[in-house]
Every structure is written in structure tokens, then in C-alpha cells.
Amino acid sequence: MGSFKGHMLPGTLFLVVGIWHIWSSVFRYASNPKSFRVRVWSPVNGFGGRVKYLELYVIAVGSFIDLCIEFLYSTHLKIVVNGALNPSHMNDFEHSGMLLMFFIFGLVALLSEKTSFLPLPEGALCFIASSAFAAEYLLFYFHSTSHKGLEGYYHFILVLLIGLCILSTVAGALFPASFPVDLCSGVAITLQGLWFYQTAFTLYGSMMPKGCLLEENEITCSSIEHEIHGELLANFQLFVQVLSVLFGVGGACIYAETKFGRASSAEV
């Protein structure tokens, strides 16, 4: 079973990185479509280069902090019981494994970009990122926590969005000059962050569907009809989020083309 904060923190990380990835992809394509290349991470220009690697620091530091929360704080340091991992906190250990993969990706990318110890091409970084998403996918698909009913439906949608993240990052390595692939990666990460938020507010917050409630660390619905109504509501919420992101992408494309595109450059 999860918690409100347990979904909000990773949701915030995914959302921030996803939105930044979308904008960077749109900006780079509008500025020079012929030289466009897929990037698994996007540098922050300006400020004398002092914040160039900000995205990678957000990924590495953010995942490390969340890892410490899951592995140390949530378990109350009761990690080993009777010579084995504490069975009461297996979900915390699984979350820690997922976060460790994203921390490794951020660290490897920083070493690759800032040092000469581990020079890796962008395609290799794409595959490393996809392995982190794959670990997340396996975590939620084979979770030790029993995701049934309405809770299971929300996590099933999350698994689908994670699968889209895997496909888009792998495609980035296979099609390194494709703007749609790069943009799709940002959209998938953004939707994953939004769905973490939606899950937090619906299952552990104030948006619980009528007839369902959180009781004794489990989501229960008073009838099959209420559970189906909750699942239909989840479908509608996902549709609204997808539509909102698409409108946002469209607005970003229009703004970037007007401000930084070929037409504005020609006028100058």
C-alpha cells in the first residue's frame, strides 16, 4: 500500500523533468530542425554554464533523497528481521530498487558528460535510462503489495505509461534524429508524473470516488457498481491529462516557432 507523499514526491520529479524535456525538444527543433538530435537529458543554457547539468542533478539528487526516505525513513531502520529482509516493508525495498536505478542513470550521465572516465554516446545513455524505466515497470507489475480493485486499476494505467517511457527512450537510441520520438519521451514522462499526482489525490486524498474508501491500509468499494464507476472516472481523468498535455505541447510548438523558429530568424 502506498501513501499520498509516497506518490507526490516521485510524481513531482517526473513532472518537472518531463515538462523540461518537452520544452527543450520543441525549442531545439524550432531553432534548427536540420541539426536536431534526440537527447535523453537536456542542458540548461545561460547563467554562464553554471546550471547546464541541472536536470541530471535533479534526477540524481531527487532519486537519492527519495531512496533514503523509502529505505531508511519508511522502514524505521528495521531493515533486517531474523536474518532476512523485513517482510513488512517489502514495498519500500522495491521502491528503493527502482529509485536506485534512476540514481545510477543520473550519476552515470554526469560522469559521462563532465569527466573523461566514462565517455558514452547519447544512444548508450538512452538505453541506460530505458533500463531504469524497465526496473520501474517490473516493480509495479510484480509488486509485493496486492494491487486489486480500484487501486490495481490506477496502478495498471501507471504501468502502461511506464511502458511508453521505455519504448520512447529505446526508440531514441534507434532513431537519434527523430523529433517525434524525442517529444514522445517528454510527453510520456510528463504523463507519468501527472498520473502519480492523480493516484495520490484519488486513492489517498480528497478525490476518492463515491462508494469507495481507504480503510485499514486498503481501498475498498461498497459494490461492484461503485468500483466500475471509479474505473470509468480513472479513464476520464487520464483522457483529461492526455488532452491537457497535448494542448500544452501545441502551445509550446506555436510559441517556439514564433519566437525562435525559422520564420523569425529569416525576419531578423
Rank of each mutant, 00 (worst) to 15 (best):
L138Y: 11
F140E: 02
S144Y: 12
T145C: 09
K148C: 04
G149E: 01
G149A: 02
G149V: 02
E151H: 12
E151Q: 12
Y153R: 01
Y154W: 09
H155F: 11
H155M: 02
H155K: 01
H155R: 01
F156I: 12
I157C: 07
I157M: 09
I157D: 03
I157P: 05
L158M: 06
I162K: 00
L164S: 13
C165W: 09
I166F: 06
I166Q: 06
L167D: 02
L167H: 03
S168L: 06
T169C: 10
V170Q: 14
V170H: 13
V170K: 10
A171W: 10
A171R: 09
G172V: 08
L174T: 11
P176Q: 11
P176H: 10
S178P: 04
V181S: 03
D182Q: 07
D182P: 04
D182C: 12
D182F: 03
D182N: 13
L183H: 00
C184M: 11
S185V: 00
S185R: 01
S185L: 00
G186L: 09
G186H: 09
A188P: 06
L191M: 14
L191V: 10
Q192L: 12
G193L: 04
G193P: 08
G193F: 04
L194Q: 15
F196A: 10
F196E: 10
Y197K: 02
Y197H: 10
Q198Y: 14
T199V: 08
A200S: 11
T202I: 10
T202H: 12
L203V: 01
Y204W: 01
Y204R: 00
G205L: 04
M208W: 14
P209A: 02
L213H: 15
E215Y: 09
E216N: 15
E216S: 12
N217P: 00
E218H: 06
E218L: 01
T220G: 05
C221D: 05
S223A: 05
E225P: 12
E225W: 14
E225D: 15
E225C: 13
H229I: 01
H229E: 06
G230M: 08
G230P: 11
G230I: 09
E231F: 07
L233W: 12
N235D: 11
F236L: 15
V240W: 06
V240R: 07
V242A: 06
L243I: 13
S244F: 13
L246C: 04
F247M: 14
F247D: 13
G248K: 02
G248P: 04
V249K: 00
V249P: 02
